[in-house]
């Protein structure tokens, strides 16, 4: 199992100027990121949609690397998105999956068939040209630079130590430090996108 914060610190060393959609990893990522105007922390607009959002963004901005930290609970809701990505094959898209085998924000209940789903094989069967799977940081650290240097779309499944949240919603720290409007306005400003 991989500690999320350590994995994100490793990724940061290789990020370059990639756009990052931190998904459910945002609480840790915002402490690590050095390019917040290229981050898109959106919280949880509607479960299962992050990969579709990232695909749309990657297709809209083919000159920029787009990195998504998806979760296995989200992906189980929208497995068809893997075929969508594989159809268009955006070479700038890097799809990392945080697989902690549970719904951590609702108390740690297991996702369906939690420990036995091979998400990298889903991606491979859908048509991703490049797939990887890691259960420890040491192996991932040997490959991270090469993964991000190669063209996408690439799928990277990672077994992550669950950080289970049990406090009532009202007692938890805010998931987003900036509103979605601020995040998107800042992002579009960074790239000179009107509107």
């Amino acid at each position: 199992m991989i500690v999320l914060h350590e994995m994100l610190e490793l990724f940061q060393q290789h990020r370059g100027k990639a756009i990052v959609i931190p998904g459910r990893g945002n609480r840790q990522w915002h402490e690590i990121s050095t390019l917040p105007s290229r981050d898109l922390p959106l919280g949880d607009p509607a479960m299962g949609g992050h990969a579709g959002f990232a695909l749309g963004l990657a297709m809209a901005m083919p000159g920029e690397k787009v990195v998504l930290f998806d979760s296995e609970g989200d992906l189980q809701m929208s497995l068809g998105v893997l075929a969508m990505v594989a159809e268009h094959k955006p070479g700038n898209f890097y799809h990392f999956l945080l697989d902690n085998e549970c719904y951590a924000t609702t108390g740690g209940q297991p996702v369906p068939n939690a420990a036995r789903v091979a998400y990298d094989q889903f991606a491979k069967a859908a048509g991703y040209p490049s797939v990887h799977a890691y259960t420890n940081l040491e192996s991932l650290s040997l490959d991270m630079g090469r993964i991000l240097a190669a063209p996408g779309p690439t799928f990277v499944a990672m077994k992550i130590v669950p950080e289970i949240e049990n406090r009532p919603m009202g007692q938890r720290p805010p998931r987003l430090l900036r509103s979605r409007e601020q995040v998107i306005a800042g992002f579009r400003g960074e790239f000179g996108i009107a509107g």
């Binding site: 898109l40 990969a51 579709g52 959002f53 695909l55 749309g56 809209a60 901005m61 992002f187 996108i193």
Partner: peptide, 13 residues
């Protein structure tokens, strides 16, 4: 997935 994909396209201009 249409709405999330459209959102990504819109944010990307």
């Amino acid at each position: 997935l249409a709405f999330s994909t459209a959102a990504g396209l819109h944010v990307g201009g």
